[in-house]
Design a protein around this nucleic acid. Structure first.
Length: 488
RNA sequence: GGCGCGUUCGUCUAGUGGCUUAGGACGCCGCCCUCUCAAGGCGGAGAUCACGGGUUCGAAUCCCGUACGCGCUACCA
């Protein structure tokens, strides 16, 4: 446990949807906060006007909420640390940028993109280890700067990175990391449109919002020294860093849209349960050190620790997600499943049917062990929703023999005599018929299943009969006798 | 190219110097259960712990090097 209450943030840029990698980052932040009685902040890093996407923020928050990762502070919550949209904090960044300029830790740069490009080209031609800004504008006189500013010359503000210094920090996941400032460019802090870059905004906000732990993706590890410099120049206390391993495609490249679904909403639409998605994503890069694989959010909060986060990237394995989905589905109560199934029916071809709760719950009970997705309570047993019109060819060949119609007639007769039959009554009746005909029960069960369901797989035979009810069963048997054509 | 990070079964991982003939999970295969399909139970195949050197009585575990992968190298985040 952390003694002081930690404050962590999930700081996505609103590019249109919540990426599963982002979900994992958000989740670890959330778990860490909840575990340590801390605060989970959502901050929107919308400082790139070129990448503005209409509705992206709403969509992001919607996905987060669906997953159950509710933030304590963020857009819409009134708090002394707001606003939480960086685009609404421009003056704040400007203020600190000016402070840095006054301390000579930053400077105005009036270089044109043309000059910058030319500089880069020349440096590449010289095969320099890397292209860096040449600090040209650092040498401008005060008069020149003022004149340029007065003439409204386009400009940026750059970080004045010192040469030949070591910057090191301790990362919770990676241990000690060290960089040489000679490899760090004079990063733009404030762009010519007045917006800050990520580096400036994230440091200023993390400080002002009193963030204690910066938990983010590994792609930020390389720019952390710039942030360290900024904290030092501004005289601020640094947060603790934890850089998370990346999520990967099956070919070990960074998880991308090209190779499958990456948005949380995609998985939601495909029918994954939020509990399963969370469980799965939590285990991608973290484990408690034991053999437990199934978690709900509470148990994750209880067990989570940043120290047990792995260093290496993890491949997103759909097979395991599917298995987890089935496990989570089975953990749900009948009434929870009923609600989910009703939602699913509304979206299906059976949305006009009036189905009583007891009927659907009966289906849920017999199909629960046979499905991985809610939609399969429909797709894997459509015979509960409609009369079979086609009969599975392979099963017809295997089970529908010359004598079968006679057997089925006999069964139908026996069933017809039953009064308000329960599951066991159907079973007894079938056993009697088998005995009378002097055949094995299988000789009746298989063709009966085909006649009643049209397929060869599914719920137990007598469950099936009971759920459908005597009248429906009789109808289907008779219809099958008329419609199934023997193939032999 | 430079800088940084990483590397245990196909995949997610356990492992922090002797308990390890490297354990679990998903997937795969087989058997059992059984009216089918599942679920469940049992079992199997699957990792020379990237490679090469050290340190040590002893290394997947510590050190060095190499290879490979990934990330960053923007007035994108």
């Amino acid at each position: 446990m952390i003694s002081e209450k930690p404050r962590v943030r999930f700081a996505p840029s609103p590019t249109g949807y919540l990426h599963v990698g982002g979900l994992r980052t958000a989740l670890y932040n959330y778990l860490f906060a909840k575990k340590n009685n801390g605060t989970f902040v959502l901050r929107i890093e919308d400082t790139d006007r070129n990448r503005f996407v209409e509705g992206a923020i709403e969509n992001l928050i919607e996905s987060l909420k669906w997953c159950g990762l509710n933030f304590d502070e963020g857009p819409g919550t009134e708090n002394k640390f707001g606003p939480y949209l960086q685009s609404e904090r421009l003056q704040i960044y400007k203020k600190y940028a000016i402070e840095l300029i006054e301390k000579k830790y930053a400077y105005y740069c009036f270089c044109s993109t043309e000059r910058l490009e030319k500089l880069k080209e020349e440096q590449q031609k010289l095969k320099l280890p890397q292209a860096k800004y040449d600090k040209h504008c650092l040498n401008l006189s005060a008069d020149e700067i003022n004149a340029n500013l007065e003439n409204n010359l386009p400009h940026v503000i750059r970080l004045n990175v010192p040469l030949n210094q070591k910057v090191n920090f301790k990362d919770i996941v990676r241990g000690d990391v060290e960089f040489d400032t000679s490899n760090i460019d004079d990063q733009v802090l404030i762009k010519s449109d007045g917006f800050p870059t990520y580096h400036m905004a994230n440091v200023v906000d993390d400080h002002l919002m009193q963030i204690t732990h910066v938990i983010r993706g590994e792609e930020w590890l390389s720019s952390t020294p710039k942030h360290i410099l900024l904290y030092d120049f501004l005289g601020w206390e640094k947060p603790i860093f934890a850089h998370l391993p990346l999520l990967l495609n099956s070919d070990r490249s960074k998880l991308s849209k090209r190779q499958g679904d990456v948005a949380v909403e995609d998985y939601r639409k495909k029918g994954y349960l939020k509990g399963a998605l969370i469980n799965f994503v939590a285990l991608l890069g973290w484990n408690a050190g034991d053999d437990v694989e199934i978690y709900n959010i509470e148990s994750l909060i209880e067990k989570f620790s940043l120290e047990r986060v792995n260093k290496a990237g993890a491949v997103f394995d759909m097979d395991k997600l599917n298995w987890l989905n089935a496990e989570h589905l089975r953990m749900k109560s009948d009434s929870e499943l009923l609600q989910l199934l009703r939602d699913e029916i509304l979206k299906s071809e059976f949305n006009t049917l009036t189905l009583p709760d007891e009927y659907l719950i009966a289906i849920i009970r017999v199909m629960k062990e046979r499905v991985s997705f809610i939609r399969e309570f429909i797709d894997k047993c459509t015979y509960f929703y409609k009369v079979p019109v086609v009969y599975e060819e392979a099963s017809v060949q295997k089970n529908w023999k010359e004598e079968t119609p006679a057997y089925m007639n006999k069964l139908a007769e026996k069933f017809a005599g039953l009064v308000n039959p329960q599951k066991e009554d159907f079973e007894t009746a079938l056993t009697e018929v088998a005995t009378e005909l002097n055949i094995g029960k299988g000789k009746l069960i298989h063709p009966l299943r085909l006649a009643v369901s049209g397929v060869s797989t599914g719920a137990g035979m007598f469950d099936l009969l009971f759920i459908l009810g005597k009248e429906e069963v009789l109808k289907r048997i008779n219809s099958a006798i008329l419609n199934i054509k023997q193939t032999t």
